[in-house]
């Protein structure tokens, strides 16, 4: 098995840019385009329809929040898209961004209920697609141990980690895996020409969002005590700002995303391939930076060439 590469699009870029990027990535043969949804300003299923019409790529929809959409609605998205464009669509389901959901009236957040709702929706979507003969896979987006383990009910899990040690920790949370269960990772990403470059703020903020959501078990198991301090700064300010970023420190945030060169990313992908990861998804802010995307595409082409040899 060779690890697949996916790229998240439709983050903050304008629709024309999303389409242009999608076409470029499709032209180099990227394995999957992940069209992200809320809190992106544009609605993923509608954008996915346009992207599907101008590319031949496989497309992932999501993350779709199980708090925002019920299973029938999510199933309807995939069914309609498949009716128009064929069996090219996977879906990623998760709870979603808690603070963004709070801004649209989803104020109650009881972790146990959130896990149950997310899992229930995932299973129902998987069954709905199966009943209708739609081949798309249902992925569960997970970071915490309960959700990671529960992902056995989905076709696969997309882990919100990038650090190989943390990924190995996450894999251990799945008690029994059958051979068909897929594992992928989804992380903030920025690919540079030279490592001397500094990570842009967009990358640091994206990494901080992921780090702030880290479950207490991984903090304890891996002694990531710096997160508690940064979380304190976040709670005091009530928002993510430069003080929170400083509390984390750049070095610490680099563990929550992939900031490297084209050569570095090939090596990274090869390492994850060795530990059994099926798919890596380059998340925001990469789609907002042309140079970074070019570097990623160069790395992908090189990796693909090596794959084919």
């Amino acid at each position: 098995m060779i690890i697949r590469w996916g790229v998240a699009i439709n983050v903050h870029e304008k629709l024309d840019d999303t389409i242009r990027i999608a076409k470029k990535l499709d032209a180099v043969g990227i394995d999957r385009l992940w069209v992200v949804d809320f809190p992106s300003p544009r609605f993923a299923p509608a954008v996915a329809d346009v992207v599907a019409s101008c590319t031949e790529a496989k497309i992932g929809i999501g993350l779709l929040s199980a708090i925002l959409y019920d299973a029938e609605t999510i199933g309807g998205f995939i069914e309609t898209l498949s009716d128009y464009h064929g069996n090219r669509f996977d879906v990623l389901i998760g709870p979603g961004d808690q603070s963004a959901l709070r801004s649209i009236g989803q104020e109650t957040w009881i972790p146990k209920e959130v896990v149950e709702t997310t899992l229930g929706t995932t299973v129902r979507v998987r069954n709905l697609l199966q009943e209708k003969g739609i081949e798309g896979h249902v992925w569960l987006g997970a970071q915490g141990p309960r959700m990671i383990d529960a992902s056995r009910e989905a076709h696969g899990v997309l882990l919100n980690y990038s650090d190989p040690m943390m990924i190995e920790w996450a894999l251990k949370q799945i008690r029994e895996r059958d051979g068909t269960h897929q594992t992928g990772v989804f992380f903030p990403s920025y690919i540079v020409s030279e490592l001397a470059d500094e990570p842009p703020n967009e990358f640091l903020y994206a990494a901080a969002i992921v780090a702030l959501g880290a479950p207490s078990k991984i903090i304890k198991d891996m002694a990531l005590w710096g997160i508690s301090e940064a979380r304190g700064a976040y709670n005091r300010k009530g928002k993510l700002n430069s003080a929170v970023i400083q509390a984390f420190g750049t070095c610490s945030l680099l563990r929550w995303g992939v900031f490297t060169t084209a050569e570095g990313v090939i090596e990274y992908a090869n390492n994850l391939d060795k530990i059994g990861i099926d798919e890596i998804v380059f998340g925001p802010p990469i789609s907002q930076f042309e140079n970074s995307l070019e570097n990623l595409m160069a790395a992908f082409k090189k990796s693909k060439k090596a794959r084919n040899q």
Partner: peptide, 16 residues
């Protein structure tokens, strides 16, 4: 529909 979904869907369709 959640109002955020309506707002985002309409924005996307306006662009499309």
């Amino acid at each position: 529909h959640n109002i955020a979904t309506l707002a985002r869907a309409a924005l996307s369709l306006c662009d499309i």
